[in-house]
Design a binder for these strands. Structure first.
Lengths: 156, 156
DNA sequence: GCAGTAGTTTTGAATAACTCATAAAAGTGG
DNA sequence: CCACTTTTATGAGTTATTCAAAACTACTGC
């Protein structure tokens, strides 16, 4: 086999989905590997290291096409800019710092099933369960503590 | 009093948070009871039944203040408009139809704990775990089936 | 290697959802 | 009822994102 997990042959993988392999798409996927959970804007800056003339609109069309074929996944937390990650079949969730917007992966503790099954579906056919843990990262907490001189509690 | 069927004495509950009880806030909370999971825009229409002159900006400031004191909760799915619900201490999750945007409550099947504990926090202090089941409701599914006109029959 | 032809990207403009600053209005304690 | 302060209304601005049409380019066959 040519692709042993580590090395992604993006042109081949793109073509395998039926899409054409373009410089923009390959650069976007490369950028997402070196900058996981990037926003469209962050992606623009990364991709411009390779393709200086690319615009934000092209980033949007590129990521849209990659989302459509399942090569990447769009993550949308709150009203901030959407973030993107390379799709993997490992059913992981995310922790999200609401101060700085940082996102990290966390494996699903229960395997694949328990969190994915709602008690009541209200007549809906469920295909995706999103689990997001919102909080504040230690770095942001230190800043908050420095700003606020009173003690604040974190409710469960 | 005109407290017909309303268990919640909103003026008192609002003052208990330290905020002033205003017509806009009471009307917003009343509207949210009769129209759960409303967007700001839907809330505008509801509140206007009582206060015809209110504007969307005022809805935004009102809900912001109510969110800040914990009387209501802001739900943000994808890049669509945020939705609001009256805060309750029952730790429920949500099912979300990505076609029509409909949202329904589902109780947490596991009680309060399991879904709330990520395997790895990446140094973050977690205070909220959001679980959202995305899918398509039966009504929207029927529309899709009607559009596609494939040979697959839907047994009703 | 070259041309044809979709598929893609670019361009320019538009939109929805939301935020902000300031002025006007309205709660609340005394 | 008055003064004081919070809250709402007004008008404008911002950000993330989408859309239509033109220009371009990757892939196929010759």
């Amino acid at each position: 086999m040519t692709n042993t997990g580590q090395i992604n042959d993006w042109p081949s993988r793109i073509r395998a989905t039926g899409l054409r392999s373009t410089r923009q798409r390959v650069a976007t996927l490369d950028s997402l590997e070196s900058f996981p959970h990037a926003t469209a804007d962050e992606l623009l800056n990364q991709v411009r290291l390779t393709l200086p003339a690319i615009t934000i609109q092209s980033i949007y069309t590129v990521v849209q096409s990659l989302v459509d074929v399942g090569l990447i996944r769009k993550l949308e937390f709150g009203s901030t800019a959407a973030r993107f990650e390379i799709e993997r079949p490992d059913n992981h969730h995310h922790v999200h710092c609401r101060q700085c917007g940082r996102i990290e992966d966390v494996p699903c503790q229960h395997g694949s099933a328990p969190c994915m099954t709602p008690a009541k579906t209200h007549g809906m056919v469920i295909d995706v369960a999103d689990v997001v843990y919102h909080g504040v990262c230690t770095q942001c907490l230190e800043n908050v503590d420095a700003d606020i001189t009173s003690d604040s509690d974190v409710s469960a």
